[in-house]
Structure formats: structure tokens, C-alpha cells
Design a protein around this nucleic acid. Structure first.
Lengths: 275, 275
DNA sequence: GTAAGTTACGAGCGACGTAAAAATG
DNA sequence: CATTTTTACGTCGCTCGTAACTTAC
């Protein structure tokens, strides 16, 4: 049986020109390489070298063998690489979500149920998420609207009610609920990538949004100031409460969202476990 | 380094379902196969089996590996096959000719100069020969007209003068040369595939051609009868003389042909050796 | 209890390296 | 004479097979 090492050696001989030089490069003795090439010739049933006593030059058959050997070795390397990638993907649950908050719960649930698996979470637009789920890039996705497509399953997962977190001394902090517009022209600390809530912000252009791209910076600013910021039922659950703030639910239509958990049909069991 | 034998073993396990059965089929012991598969997993860096104490089932990564391994093994087999074929072609001089007679000389010459090479001779139409030469199917071709194409070389090789071999008692047997038409409506023994001489025959439709497809049969008929047959300067040279016949050269225009030897440009030396 | 898989251990074969010989420029 | 290849020979290591153990059906 031909060995892949022999093909590598053949290529080395081709590159270095002589068996001696190739043996040197391969860190084996020159007689060993000579014998290995002799075995290769015997196993292939052809002569690969023109031998002139103290010279062994690749003949045309040898040249052809070299040309093909590279491809075979490459395909073996590719096999190993693909298998490793495939195994990594199998041991990873890739979750996509249109917003961060519902993902927190889901990630915690998955980490609890599948402690041996790696979790990969990603935020994205709902349409991109659906496409990613269909193509296998995601195992699960969280969307802000039901998905009804062939091959995909969808279930209501959780609801998020956006709140405005006001300092206790704020005149509106005693209200049970308000509309965002009632804040007039106030400044509000907010995230740069606000996902599904973006529309609500755009509907109230009079407000000044102090946009922060870094989560830690925003938290720091919230703590150090008395500026309003956003919270929700899910952030409250996660972080107990936003410090020094009173969360007042927003009545706006776009301030309340129902999230749906979607998976491919062959993951029906997984979906049922999670909902 | 992965070994091809391990890929074969992997496939055997996949086919037989269990390591034991595969080991049996491969004529190795079961522990040996177990260890070989363990080494393969280590070398690939993935696990290929779901191991349940006394059961080893291919997992999805393993299935993928099996699917790819077959292709790799096939390409190695193909490599060996192609190399053997290529070597055979390199050690063969394929000659094509538009007629048999000039090939006799050429074949003798080649066999003399290249005793280690195999000779392959073939008859064909001139146009097909030229195409075959250009495509590498022939190393040399003999044509009845000069060939002037880019990439091809052509030299005058030999001339053939067609004769009519008459029995000594034939009234025309004393002539130095005759035209074929002078034979009137006589019967003539001839070959089925007469190549370049076919035109001459068609120009004299009054004659009766006793067409023979088998060379030995024709020779037998010539010996056993006193019917005229064709010969040429080249057949005379080769077979001394046609038995019991007097060869009279034919004056017809198509009864005299100059043969050209053609090769590809990179065979210039070979062509010069032969002409 | 049988069949399958893994681990332990001893043995044999094969490939390796060193050394020597032959040949070529 | 240096370089390269091939052959000879002794050694080492790897893989194999046998045997023992474990587990599942």
C-alpha cells in the first residue's frame, strides 16, 4: 500500500533536485529515502527516475506523479481541516437574535441544559437571521415576529416591555406608565445598536439621544448621572434593577415586543424543550 | 501522518458496521483495528466514533470522513493507473500510415533503432492520421502527400510504384510497363482495404476485382491460381518476389505514390534519424 | 453467555541509520 | 577528490497478535 509520506518525499525530491538534498530536508538518512522511493516505484508499478549510477533524475512519469501527488496530499489535509471544522460546528449551538435581552435568558437555559456544548450568540436583522437559520448558520434564532416558512418551526418565547428608567426625583417617576413623547426634549442615555427599539427612537426625534457604543461606559454614565435611560422587564430580571432609577413602562406601541424562538424542523425536540 | 490503509480500514468499519467484523474482513486482529482507528482519530484531531463501552458507532464526523475517504483512495488508485498507462505510452512508438507497404520499412527501422520500445502500427485515412499526430495519438505518420501545418514536421520518406503481377505465360508479362486499362476485363486478386490505391481501381471499373479481406487467404489464392494480383517495388523488396508472377510496373498516374513521414516539432531529431 | 471493545504485554518484522562500495564529473 | 547513489548489516521502534478484562444485550 502506498503511503502518503512517500508522496511527500517524492515532492521533496522534485523540489530539491537530488535524493540527498531531499533526505536532508526531510531529516531522514539518504539511504532511507532511496529505499522509500524504490518501494514507491514498486508499489506504483512504474519507474519514476532515470538512474545513472550516481544520479537519479525524475523521468516524465515521475514528473507526472509529482504533479498529481500534490493534489492528493492537499485533499487529505483538507479532509482533516473539514472534519475539525465540522466537529466544532456540531459541538456549538449558534443562536441568533434580533435583540440582546431575550438572548440572555435563552443562553442561560442552553448553558444549563447542554453544559458540554459551546454557545455562540450573535445579533442580527430578523431577515438575515431567518436566512441564516435556513442555511444552517444558526441552530436557533429569536425574532420579533412569527416566522412561517416551510422547514422552519416557530414558537412564542417571551415578551419584553421597554421602560424608561428615571431618577426618583424626576416629575414623571411616580407614573404607572407614560408615553415616550411625554419626556419632551430631554436627553436620554442609549445604546448605539438598539436593534428592534430603533424605530421607537426614530418616532420621537425631539428627544436627545446620548448614544453609547460601549456597554460598560453606558453603565458608568448611568451610575454617575441622573440622566434617564432605557430598561425593560428583562433587564430588571437580570440586573435586579437599574441603579438609582425608577423604571416606568412605556405605552408606545413599539415599546412592547413579543419574541419568537425558531428552529429547523429536525430540531423540533430542542424547541419543545426550550419553550 | 495519516496512512491510506487507515482510510481503507475506516471504510471497512463503515461497511461492516462493527470493528470486529471489519477486522475479520481485513484479516487483522480486532485490537489492531481498534488501535489503528484510535490513531486515525488522534491524527485527524477529531473523534470519529461514539463509544459506548462495548460498541463503537461512527458519529456524524465519522460518516463525513468515510464519505471523503473513498474519494481520496480512488484518486490514489487512479494515480497508479494513469502512471502505468503513461509509462506504457512513453515506451510505445505509435505509427500511423495511409498504406501498409511503407510502414514495413519504417517499422523495421524503428525496431532496429529502438529495440527497447514497443511498436504500435495502425492504418488510417490521411486526414485522421494528421489529426491523430497533432493530438499525440501517433508519434509518426506516413502520408501520401506533404503536410504543412504549424507544429508538424514533414519529410519525403519513400516512393512506391504499383505493379501488376502477371503469370509468366500472360501475353502482357513481357512488357516493361503497362497501363491498368490494357488488362481489359480480366479478374484481379486484390485487398479489401486497398488504401491509397483505391482510386486507381475505381478508375478502371471494367476489371473484376476479387476482393479479399484476409491477407493470408489472398497469398494462398495467388499461389494456387494464375490470376493477376498487385505488387509494388516495396513488396518485392520485402518478399523477394511474388511467387510465379512477373511484376510489370503500371504507368497510370495514380499508380505511383510518394510517401511523406511526419512528426511533431519536438521530434525533429527522430525524423532526421529516419529520413 | 455471547459478542464487542479496550487495555496490557510480549514478539516479530520492517524501516532506519551507519558504514562501505561504486561511479561520475 | 567530492558528490551522489546503491547495497550490506545491525539495531531500534512500531504495530501486530494473544490474552485478560469490562460491558452490554
Amino acid at each position: 500500500m502506498i503511503e502518503l509520506a512517500q508522496l511527500q518525499q517524492l515532492i521533496a525530491v522534485s523540489e530539491r533536485g537530488t535524493i540527498s538534498a531531499a533526505a536532508n530536508a526531510l531529516h531522514i538518512s539518504q539511504p532511507a529515502l532511496t529505499r522509500s522511493m524504490q518501494r514507491l516505484e514498486a508499489e506504483l508499478g512504474v519507474s519514476l527516475f532515470d538512474r545513472k549510477r550516481n544520479r537519479a533524475v525524475l523521468n516524465r512519469v515521475g514528473e507526472m506523479a509529482v504533479a498529481r501527488a500534490g493534489g492528493i496530499l492537499a485533499s487529505v489535509d483538507e479532509l482533516a481541516r473539514e472534519l475539525r471544522l465540522f466537529e466544532a460546528r456540531l459541538s456549538t449551538i449558534a443562536v441568533g437574535s434580533c435583540g440582546p435581552a431575550p438572548m440572555w435568558d435563552l443562553a442561560a437555559e442552553l448553558a444549563d441544559r447542554f453544559p458540554e456544548k459551546t454557545l455562540s450568540t450573535e445579533l442580527g436583522e430578523t431577515d438575515a437571521l431567518i436566512e441564516g437559520l435556513a442555511q444552517g448558520r444558526y441552530r436557533l434564532i429569536l425574532t420579533e415576529r412569527p416566522v412561517d416558512l416551510p422547514g422552519l418551526l416557530c414558537r412564542k418565547y417571551t415578551e419584553e416591555q421597554l421602560c424608561i428608567a428615571l431618577p426618583p426625583e424626576h416629575p414623571l417617576s411616580g407614573r404607572k406608565a407614560i408615553r415616550l413623547a411625554e419626556l419632551g426634549e430631554e436627553s436620554i442615555l442609549t445604546y448605539k445598536d438598539f436593534g428592534i427599539w430603533q424605530r421607537l427612537l426614530e418616532q420621537n426625534p425631539r428627544l436627545h439621544y446620548l448614544i453609547q457604543s460601549d456597554r460598560a461606559t453606558l453603565a458608568e454614565l448611568v451610575r454617575a448621572s441622573n440622566l434617564p435611560c432605557f430598561s425593560s422587564n428583562l433587564t430588571v430580571f437580570r440586573f435586579r434593577a437599574t441603579v438609582n432609577r425608577v423604571s416606568v413602562p412605556l405605552l408606545d406601541e413599539d415599546a412592547s415586543v413579543t419574541f419568537y424562538l425558531c428552529a429547523r424542523e429536525n430540531d423540533r425536540t430542542l424547541l419543545q424543550q426550550l419553550c
